[in-house]
Design a protein around this nucleic acid. Structure first.
Length: 154
DNA sequence: GCCAACGTTGGC
DNA sequence: GCCAACGTTGGC
């Protein structure tokens, strides 16, 4: 079993959107490292943090579960989609996705600034300077620490 | 809105 | 296959 952190801009797609319609396709990832995570590394039943990027504040807002195998992202074939990729042949799709299912919304945002202050999270991928992956691995220890922070659950 | 970081593209 | 130019991400 693996743990993940997955980013979305809440103006585009927030944890409330997922809570309102779950499971849902985690669509639109157009990065080969992320594609390989989706295709090769993720497993059914893996858990992920939902992270709000480009928001105030940025941070972890809840959890979800990976509930499908990898399959082609339909938006790559849809000319009306912002994620359309004309170079992706339908018989050999470039981009895959996973279905995710809402699990929990925390009662507060664990901001990036707070994450930086917590012992045991020093090596967390999301805290590294310059990292830009929208999906990144989280260790079991990091998962446990974040989930045990005070005030996450009423 | 700025800019650092870094992935991608394309000419050679 | 190198690498410069360009585009994107995302925190601030």
């Amino acid at each position: 079993m693996n743990y993940w952190l997955m980013k979305s801009e809440p103006d585009c797609y927030s944890i409330d959107d997922l809570a309102a319609k779950s499971p849902a396709m985690w669509e639109g990832c157009r990065n080969y490292t992320v594609r390989n995570y989706f295709r090769d590394t993720m497993q059914l039943g893996d858990m992920a943090f939902f992270y709000h990027s480009n928001s105030d504040p940025c941070g972890i807002v809840g959890t979800m579960e990976i509930v499908s195998a990898a399959y082609p992202d339909p938006t790559q074939f849809d000319p009306s989609s912002t994620y359309f990729d004309a170079k992706s042949p339908i018989e050999a799709p470039r981009w895959v996705l996973r279905d995710v299912s809402f699990r929990e919304k925390f009662s507060r945002v664990i901001s990036l600034a707070e994450l930086r202050t917590i012992a045991g999270l020093e090596d967390m991928h999301v805290l590294r300077k310059g990292q830009r992956l929208s999906v990144m691995p989280v260790t079991e220890a990091e998962w446990t620490i974040v989930n045990s922070l005070s005030g996450l659950r009423d």
